[in-house]
């Protein structure tokens, strides 16, 4: 099993657009990735509802884990998703 722990970088937390970007990326992985926040039920990273229910805000520590295989798909998935989580994915539009 591989694990990586990161803090959420998006200003509005893992919510709305950032959550959508994250969940889409997780669903595109060949392996199942779990997102774990202290005190919450581990979430299927490819489930929008489960990810939203984590209630992760900017700065929340999230551990991502996946089963690894010989080809390293789990490691790669966890690394890729961790990078995404750490970035600020908010792109709220609006003028002035």
């Amino acid at each position: 099993m591989v694990q990586r722990t990161v803090t959420v970088g998006s200003a509005s937390g893992l919510h709305a657009r950032p959550a959508a970007i994250f969940v889409k990326a997780a669903a595109a992985q060949p392996v199942r990735v779990r997102a774990i926040v202290d005190g919450k039920k581990p979430a299927n990273a490819a489930s929008m509802l489960a990810v939203l229910a984590l209630g992760a805000t900017q700065g929340t520590t999230v551990t991502l884990e996946a089963d690894d295989d010989a080809a390293g798909a789990g490691r790669q998935a966890v690394d890729e998703l961790a990078q995404l989580l750490a970035r600020d994915l908010d792109a709220e539009p609006g003028d002035g």
């Binding site: 657009r17 489930s47 709220e92 539009p93």
Partner: peptide
């Protein structure tokens, strides 16, 4: 903004869990 919300809602309706 609305587009992003609709997109997120579409993903909820397709949620595997």
């Amino acid at each position: 903004t609305t587009k992003a919300v609709l997109d997120a809602l579409s993903m909820i309706a397709a949620d595997p869990d």
